[in-house]
Design a binder for these strands. Structure first.
Lengths: 235, 235
DNA sequence: ACTATCCGCGAACACTGTTCGCAAATGTCT
DNA sequence: AGACATTTGCGAACAGTGTTCGCGGATAGT
């Protein structure tokens, strides 16, 4: 651990060549967590999957936190950025869809802190800033927009995966229903009463809600003359 | 663990009375994690702070996950909901400010999953729905608005606390600066070049950015005739 | 008083992250 | 070629983790 994770020079050194690379380690970690969940991520399991020993891992990373950072940047490399068209709405939606798909493929992404991001994550950041550039926002507003959009995607994906887990393991919405009768939550009850025409867990509504949220933020942030049809449907 | 966490009847039972209550346990956990961080939360430490043994804790909760759920709902009880005024912007801002303060007081809140929420969390949900009610949104849009706002507050608070930690532990923005020279991130570089007049880590700008984000979402979501001055400042 | 029931908890099990020191392998220099 | 410096891989250990089991004792209803 002479330098930080991402500033590693691969010049020839004195001793024997390292058997693995940071990329290998990241790939193995991602593969493991994708299939067995975050709880399965342990030094010994990763080392076993790598064909080495737990203690050897500490020649590459300085601790378990580094594994998480490595994983996050590894999957951030899955982005395929199309050339920017100049249409804020289209460009932002394109990258947001990719981000949502990424979070669906790797639901554990929500649990890794966004600190010290690697080159791929910075590339994502750069692309999103570029997509927002035609709006001619100042730096503060741009960073806010990026945070707003990234946060929306993360939260939306988290809600989606949590819904999947809840519908599999049984006790989900019915638990809320019994709480509605126990305590008094007038506004929540009114909301539930007004909307029993459509099943709220309709999977096709998710896509519409997703882009509606994006458009809502864009309409609030970007100038209206750059927007096409910013208003979301309302009853 | 006969029933779920929140549906616990306190009727007289056969055996001896339980020494502690779920509220006590939650309070002890919150106190511990507030002072020593999430890593310090262990069964044995909680039991020690309670004056009992680790195995005894399993008479109250079914595992460590229950502790997290207990803690989240415990601090959600710190909300003090003012009567709704009917002004969407004012009411939403009021609860958002409280939520931000809550996240500042308990930064670990970001790390606990939002699944199976307790009565206090549902009360927060209910209040936020009530604050959004004058906008006359349909159920889907309302839930989306709630998710949007809650997510924004959570992300904002996380960014704030992460900034605090980064500024204390040294390597933060300068690490990004060296990456800017190493890879090519044109849009990010342009953004940094355009905005070196003001220090981006100015703590006083945080408040403005916070309400600007809220207003941005409200302006995108709520009808414009319910808004007072929805446009955010732009250069 | 009897008994069903529940509580507290000591002990154990399988793991966890992390450190230390040593042997072997490799590059550079004389 | 040989000596040296350096770096890797790893066995072993340590402190601590979540969780389970089964016991003894306390309690309330009958």
């Amino acid at each position: 651990m002479p330098t930080s994770l991402w500033l590693r020079s691969d010049e020839p050194k004195r001793g024997p060549r390292p058997t693995h690379t940071l990329g290998d380690i990241a790939a193995v970690c991602v593969d493991l967590v994708d299939r067995e969940g975050m709880r399965a991520l342990s030094m010994r399991r990763v080392a076993e999957a790598l064909g080495t020993s737990a203690a050897s891992l500490y020649r590459y990373v300085s601790g378990k936190d580094d594994l998480l950072a490595l994983m996050a940047d590894h999957v951030a490399g899955e982005y395929e950025f199309a050339p920017l068209s100049g249409d804020v709405r289209a460009d932002v939606l394109a990258v947001a869809e990719q981000s949502r798909a990424l979070h669906q493929r790797h639901p554990w992404l929500r649990e890794v802190p966004a600190t010290d991001m690697g080159p791929n994550t910075v590339a994502y950041l750069d692309h999103l800033i570029g997509a927002l550039a035609p709006a001619k926002l100042d730096a503060t507003s741009t960073m806010m927009g990026v945070a707003l959009l990234s946060g929306w995607v993360t939260n939306f994906a988290a809600q989606e995966s949590a819904g999947d887990v809840a519908s599999e393991s049984g006790g989900g919405a019915e638990h809320i229903a019994t709480m509605l009768t126990q305590g008094d939550y007038p506004h929540l009850a009114a909301l539930f009463a007004h909307a029993d025409k459509a099943d709220p867990t309709d999977p096709l509504d998710n896509d519409a809600a997703f882009v509606a949220g994006i458009e809502a933020m864009l309409f609030g942030i970007a100038p209206p003359d750059l927007q096409a049809q910013p208003r979301i449907p309302r009853s």
